[in-house]
Computed example of a mutant assay.
Amino acid sequence: MDPVHPGNPKPSFFRDLFTGIGYLVRGIGWTARRPGQWLFGLIPALIVLVVYVAALTALAFNLDDLASWVTPFADGWSSGARDTARVVAGIAIFGAALFVAILLFTALTLLVGDPFYEKIAERVEDSAGGAPPEPDVPLGVQIVRAIRDGLLLGVIALAFGLVFFVCGFLPVVGQTVVPVVAAFVSGWFLTAELTSIALERRGLLRRERFARLRANRGLTLGFGVATFVVFLIPLGAVVAMPGAVAGATLLARERLAGPYR
Results as ranks from 00 to 15, higher is better:
3 P>Q: 04
5 H>I: 03
9 P>D: 00
13 F>R: 07
15 R>Y: 14
16 D>L: 03
18 F>E: 05
19 T>L: 15
22 G>P: 03
23 Y>Q: 05
24 L>Y: 01
26 R>N: 10
29 G>F: 05
29 G>H: 03
31 T>Q: 06
31 T>G: 00
34 R>Q: 09
35 P>M: 00
38 W>E: 02
38 W>P: 04
39 L>T: 02
43 I>G: 06
51 V>W: 15
51 V>M: 14
54 A>F: 15
60 A>K: 10
63 L>R: 06
66 L>V: 03
68 S>K: 14
71 T>V: 10
82 R>M: 14
87 V>H: 13
90 G>K: 00
93 I>M: 10
95 G>Y: 05
97 A>K: 09
100 V>K: 13
103 L>D: 11
106 T>S: 11
113 G>A: 10
113 G>L: 07
114 D>G: 04
120 I>T: 05
121 A>Q: 07
121 A>S: 15
130 G>W: 06
131 A>M: 07
134 E>Y: 10
136 D>R: 14
138 P>L: 06
139 L>W: 10
140 G>C: 11
141 V>K: 12
142 Q>E: 14
148 R>P: 02
149 D>R: 12
154 G>I: 03
155 V>D: 04
160 F>H: 12
164 F>K: 08
170 L>T: 12
171 P>R: 00
172 V>I: 15
173 V>M: 14
176 T>E: 06
176 T>G: 07
181 V>M: 15
186 S>K: 10
186 S>D: 06
188 W>Y: 15
188 W>M: 12
190 L>K: 02
191 T>C: 12
193 E>M: 06
195 T>F: 00
198 A>S: 11
207 R>M: 13
218 G>Q: 04
223 F>A: 00
228 F>R: 08
228 F>V: 12
234 P>R: 08
235 L>E: 07
238 V>E: 11
238 V>H: 13
240 A>S: 11
244 A>W: 02
244 A>K: 01
244 A>E: 02
245 V>K: 04
246 A>Q: 04
248 A>V: 04
250 L>D: 02
254 E>F: 04
257 A>K: 09
261 R>G: 13
